[in-house]
């Protein structure tokens, strides 16, 4: 059986400037992983092997650190990453209903990506906008005081925008 790390073919040269800056600075593994995720959108397995090799450590250790933190993803994400807040304030103000509406409308579970690759749904801990609860972020934009209807309207707006571009 072929190893998964040889099947994945990421462009490792993109990571060269990051490694040049940080590979020899002690304690920089998390920073390198963050920069790698900025470049690739997620952490492909060959990238993890490459980072291990270049920083003089084992893939197991790199993966051990990466899987510890919720920020790191091991699957590609959709064009729009929906981060739905389930902090205390959002929870009390009905984030569960928003989650249910999004799951049903997008046919996707928490952590999954829609078949068309447009949306990924991630239910996250507090985004720190509690006064606007319930809140979600779609990529860099924050939307507050959501209802199931308004959350779906935002999805439909994005879909319409994408359809117009296509």
């Amino acid at each position: 059986m072929e190893c998964a790390c040889t099947k994945q073919k990421s462009d490792l040269s993109l990571l060269a400037p990051v490694l040049a800056e940080y590979a020899s600075v002690r304690g920089s593994l998390i920073t390198i992983l963050q920069k790698a995720q900025e470049i690739y959108g997620w952490l492909p397995v060959d990238v993890i092997y490459h980072i291990a090799e270049q920083t003089g450590t084992t893939p197991a250790r790199v993966l051990g650190v990466a899987t510890f933190y919720t920020q790191f993803r091991f699957q590609p994400v959709g064009k729009y990453l929906i981060m739905l807040c389930d902090g205390t304030a959002c929870h009390v103000n009905g984030s569960a209903a928003i989650a249910a509406a999004l799951r049903e409308y997008l046919h996707v579970e928490n952590g999954g990506t829609t078949a068309d690759g447009l949306f990924s749904l991630s239910i996250v801990a507090c985004l720190g906008c509690c006064s606007l609860s319930p809140v979600m972020m779609v990529n860099e934009d924050t939307y507050g005081s959501l209802t199931p209807q308004s959350a779906l309207a935002i999805m439909k707006d994005i879909q319409a925008k994408e359809a117009a571009q296509a």
Binding site: R26, G27, S28, L29, I30, T31, L33, Q34, G64, V65, F68, Y69, T70, Q71, F72, A125
Partner: peptide
Amino acid sequence: IKAGAGAFVCGEETALIESLQGQRG
């Protein structure tokens, strides 16, 4: 500045230090 990577336990000071050193927090 060091950006955390999302782990509640890193609010605990010794876990935060581990994380600053590039380890599991």
